[in-house]
Amino acid sequence: MRAVTVESFGGPEVLEIAETVVPEPAARQVRIKVAAAALNPVDAGVRSGVFGGAGKRLGLGWDVSGTVDAVGVATGWSVGDEVVALAYGADKSFGTHADYVVVDTDAVAKAPASADAVHAATLPLNALTASQALDLLALEPGQSLLVTGAAGAVGGYAVQLAAHRGISVTAVAREADEALVRSLGAARVVSGAVEPRSVDAVLDAALLGEAALEWVRDGGVFSGVIPGAQPASVRGVRTDAVEVSPDGARLAELVALVDEGVLTLRVAETYALDEAAKAHARLAEGGLRGRLVLVP
């Protein structure tokens, strides 16, 4: 099978399409024939060496949609099931940017009935990140949340999920994205200055750090999206950062919200697997409103 890998770090030019044997699932694992796999900033981080791994051959890709084509024992899944999954980890030999991927059964959920495989591939990593970040914030209906990077993938899901929970959402986004983030459920949109100490919580998907922390009221809560990179606590504000984890049960809940029309799946462009370097170059250009998706 083909798999996108890196053995030396750098720009898109270091990506390789490796030929390797098709992996076999062990107990409580399934093999998925990949139909589509989203490209995320974390993949660019792996490629450029942000997460280390020098001297190893590293596989790329965390999101997958496709069809179960082999199962280990005690999986609960059957060959032919259409699924989505999160293949967690920056230090893995092969990821979802491949013809096949093996994942643990508890990372898998039934694919959305209302979406094609390309759109479904944009759900696992970013929606789980947004959902688990909201868990850290532990807001009640009626409380206020400010989301930075609200037009992005994680931020967009966070806006929708928070609004669905009855939380009042202020979105930080460019003026050109105001209509988009309002359509996602933001009650208020700001593109510049935010009143200090004006919200109960901040979900900082844009990595603004201490600047965004200033917008949280005394005793409020802040969540970043890079573990360990959150600012230090001030004024009694609890600061934390989400580290996404595979969770098939939660992913199934998110799939249900897609089918109910609560969550919007956004695809910017698609590329063939062999065009992974072009996709990485496009990602580096920025300005995307939706995910790039690789299709084997």
Rank of each mutant, 00 (worst) to 15 (best):
V216W: 01
R291A: 13
V50Q: 11
T105Q: 11
V30G: 10
L254S: 04
V21I: 05
L139H: 08
A272C: 04
D116N: 15
A268P: 03
G287F: 00
A162H: 10
D247K: 02
D204K: 02
H280F: 14
E7C: 04
A133V: 14
A111M: 15
R182Y: 05
A176D: 15
G149W: 06
A36C: 06
R188A: 13
V189R: 13
A74E: 15
E210A: 15
L15Y: 06
V42Y: 05
T129E: 09
A70G: 12
G80E: 13
I17C: 13
A158I: 12
D259P: 01
V6R: 12
G53L: 04
G59T: 09
S168V: 13
V84S: 12
G287M: 05
D106F: 07
D259M: 12
A162D: 10
D204E: 12
A211P: 04
A268I: 03
V34N: 02
L128D: 08
A241M: 11
A158K: 05
D240G: 08
V83H: 10
A171V: 07
E275C: 06
G49D: 08
A201M: 11
V199R: 01
L180P: 03
A150Q: 04
E195T: 15
T170N: 09
L15E: 00
V194K: 11
Q160A: 13
A85G: 04
L208T: 05
R165P: 02
A37I: 06
T122Q: 09
A87M: 11
V159P: 05
A276N: 03
A249L: 14
V84H: 12
A252R: 01
E7P: 00
A109T: 01
V216M: 01
E260C: 03
L137A: 07
H119N: 10
L207V: 13
D104R: 14
V30F: 13
W62F: 15
Q132Y: 13
Q230G: 04
V34K: 01
G61Y: 06
V221Y: 06
T5M: 03
L125A: 03
A54Y: 10
R57I: 15
G220N: 12
P12L: 07
A127K: 01
W215R: 11
G220Y: 08
L273W: 06
S198F: 08
L139Q: 04
D63K: 01
R165Y: 10
G156M: 04
L184R: 14
L136D: 02
T264L: 15
V216P: 03
R282S: 00
I32S: 04
A179R: 00
H97C: 02
L15M: 14
L208Y: 08
G185D: 07
P25F: 14
V22A: 14
